[in-house]
Amino acid sequence: MSRNSIKILQGALVCEESKLRGDITIGTGTIIHPSATILAEAGPIIIGDCCLIEEQVKIIHRLPFDQQDKENTPVLIIGSHNVFEVDCHVEAPKIGNYNVFESKSFVGNKVTVTNGCIIGAGCKVTQEQILKENVIIYGHDCHMREGLDRPGLQTLQMETLSKMLPNYHHIRKPNKKN
């Protein structure tokens, strides 16, 4: 991927110091902190609305080795209201809505994340699988349990951030009208 083409929709807050490579579309209300890394290596990444991407987060669109020779370029679609906490590393090929990736978690590139899932702090998920809705992975041994409901929204936090971040960081200008 030689050329960067970053599309930032109106209302998104993307810090200048974040590292964005490749073809990336960022939806309304999404906040990307400085030093977050989003690499669209294998194909474009489309991030939905109101996602929170914190510091040191790595979102990498990279295909497994056995799928790399395919003709069509896959698109990584990340749904809305996802929270990527500090230093999580996500390579999932598909992410739904309302998911939480807690700090220092790792999601491999064979794991499809549906809706309302929580990957607990420090948990590593690499085995090829489709996570069911509202699945919670937690603990040292990556225990899995099914939650009753999707996790709560981070509205308050995001409101504060959207006020605070522009005071201390350079913000990329939205370049796309929706």
């Binding site: 607990g120 919670i136 937690y138 225990h143 349990r145 939650g147 009753l148 996790p151």
Partner: peptide, 9 residues
């Protein structure tokens, strides 16, 4: 706060 279990579950 760890595994998100709640008494509502």
């Amino acid at each position: 706060l760890y595994c998100r279990w709640s008494s509502r579950d």
